[in-house]
Amino acid sequence: MKSDGLRLGTWLLLGPALLWLLLLIVLPHVDMLLVSLRQRTGFGQYQTSTVHYLAFFTEPLYWRTFMRTAVMSILATILTLVIAFPVAWYIAKMVRGRVRSLLFMACLVPFWVSELVRTYGWMILLRETGVVSGFLQWTGLASGSVEMLYNDVAVMVGLVYASMLFMVVPLVTTLDSLDDCLIEAAYDLGGNGWSVLREIVIPFAMPGIVSGCIVVFMLSLGNYLTPVLLGGKGSMWFTEQIFTQFIVRFNWEQGAAFGVLLLVLSSLIVWLGLKLTRQSFTEVMR
């Protein structure tokens, strides 16, 4: 009786979460998969087909756009990691109390405004008639105006900036739990800065690094505004392609196929990354 009650209670508690999962995550994806597998044959007429998937592999533009997006996202992830690690180290190990919460705040501040405003902020800074260019001319470092917007570097800056927090938080959490004694012990046993970092700190922080990297990679891959607004005239982002297919071309079938492909391919990349770093997903998410 009691165990029955307990089980019912568990189900009731889990219910909303499961329902949410089903309604908002599983069903839309199933629907997207179904839409992606049909082809328009006339006004309002469709037949089952895989042409939209074939189009991805046969039209170089599409898979090149995806590759570009993936490579840029990986690069953004690595850059974010490289920049965030010292920051996280500083927050977790070097400062205490108020300074620490202040620094955390500083990482959080960009998220108080919307992504659009944040991106416009970068545009104001980087554009030809913008703040940085003006400053460079004022100091005499540049003779004419300098355009720093509309290129891949600007996109990278925007992506890294937008991802910072999602890397810093898991890193700080893991580094926080790293006992200072471990580092001292490693030094005491003959380690130097580099070997301590490589053999003690990084292996210890690996779960944080991997979960941060997964989040940042997925966020970059799925980012839309940053690459579209900061990117140059030749730059294409895969999500932009999906948006275009859905909204501009009314080609939901192609857009859905791209959506499914994005999901599958990005999962594949994450899986490969986990394999390469010999991490298991369950361990990282612990």
């Binding site: 533009l61 030749g234 009314f250 080609n251």
Partner: peptide
Amino acid sequence: EAIEGRILDRVQA
């Protein structure tokens, strides 16, 4: 729109 889309994609790429 499909024709125009292809052309626009090509120009952008």
